[in-house]
Write a protein that binds this DNA or RNA. Sequence first.
RNA 1: GCGCCGUUAGCUCAAUUGGCAGAGCAGGGGCCUUUUAAGCCCAAGGUUACAGGUUCGAUUCCUGUACGGCGCACCA
Length: 510
Amino acid sequence: MHDWNKLERIRLEKMRALQENGADPFPSSVTRTHSTAQAVQAFENAAEAETVQAVVVGRIRSIREMGKVIFAHLEDGEGKLQLFFRQNDLGDEAMARFSEHFDLGDFIEASGHMFRTRTGEVTLHVEQFRMIAKAIRPLPAAKEEEVDGERVVHSAFSDPEARYRERYADLAVNPEVRQIFEKRAALLRALRTFFDQRGFLEVETPILQPIYGGAAARPFVTHHNQLHQDLYLRVSFELYLKRLIVGGVEAVYEIGRDFRNEGVSFKHNPEFTMLEYYQAYADYTDVMDTTEELIAFVARELNGTTTITYGGEQIELAPPWKRMSLREALIESAGIDIDVHRDASSLHAAMRALDIEANPDASRGKLIDSLIGGTLEPTLIQPTIIYDYPRDISPLAKSRADDPDTVERFEAFIGGMEICNAFSEINSPLEQEQRFLEMGRAYDVGDEERHPMDEDYLRALSYGMPPTGGFGMGIDRLTMLFTDQTTIREVILFPHLRSRERDGADQEES
RNA sequence: GCGCCGUUAGCUCAAUUGGCAGAGCAGGGGCCUUUUAAGCCCAAGGUUACAGGUUCGAUUCCUGUACGGCGCACCA
């Protein structure tokens, strides 16, 4: 494995000493009559004279040796329980066995009876105990105390890199980390409940795709050996879900992983979880309504209220949300009327005149996009729907009948973050082919970010697709919102980090 | 990809203008029969991320590499 350090060698010695005494430090079967919480509950419920016996299992999180008695805390998935060892009751041999061979972090099985200490803590008076899993490596040291009912942690395991690389240790010593992922699970459950109750069909579509599409993003490429075929990890599910709409599935959703071969940041991970839904006979205004209901529903399921706090700001998620056209919003936030600037050079000049950074090579749509990100997005703390986007950055969204350069698309923002992207879907195969061609021209040949022409998708549309509204939402960012986290790494169990280079050839696997 | 900052004991952190690298916790040896960040005494613990350079002398100054954090760019 690796060279054990001094602390680990001492623990290995303790493990061997147990083995020499005939004990298995890693038995496969254990007894458990009560969780920690159940043991406390059973004692509280019992009559005064009644003895409550319990066998509990868990990890030793603290040890206080006081000569002929020892206090320790055992932690399981539900909480902590204090253990009390008394030499008079256990005998010299058992007492020595504990103090000499058991360390912080070890898993222990302890049986005894419940009682209340002088200071009032419900405690297990240990009669028998044994090792059920020895921890060779010490957990990151952290101590905690209660001050006015608040948990105060000292010397917490807090280095972000170490926490993400060793999430197991992070979870073992930082209980609030597990709460984030419990909330994430509850959020996913709430999303499914919402759509299931409305008759949506949950589906799974291919992750390995022969042609990627549905988003302007660089894909990961892989290869199928037997078929001699390059495949792409999906950047979106969009085109597959709309094929299902063609097939008569009128309401459909998928929750799954997307992969984008792009930068890593506090709000970007190369693989991230996405929710997309499509609904026949809905347009983007219907999707706006559903979006408001969805987020409010999730908030109530998670917290019992539609008010949340994010980054110190109180946010009210109950409908109706503020709705503004993108044009109005940019006039307000940037002081630029995009209708006045109908081409890239005019818009670029307007931005420069206001001292807003602008890439001279960018298209009009990309400039508008950067205006959104730079001037608008950070101001949208309360939920806001921004609608009617420029056509050239929306290759799958249907144009407005009254303005072909503007599409029926909206994005919702909460807490200064883009939460979702939605539109009335293009359902004319001719229009869609035209858009693919426009996108193809906008990028150099071979540019992986361009939308490749998906002939099979056009074939599907040519069978006829009803008017359809579609919606995509990043689940990681939604989790950030509901757990008040400012980095995506805190809501992904194993966020992507660069691999540690192993220095020196002597470390090679043997 | 670019910029700024960081990396010191198992964990959390110190170290004055360059002068023997320290503390708390954890760990080891003692004392202590109701403690809870238990307490008290003793001893130990380090290739200061890595590789070079400047210097009598480098944790400290310089260069490079690795990894991370933050910001920018890209994007969801």
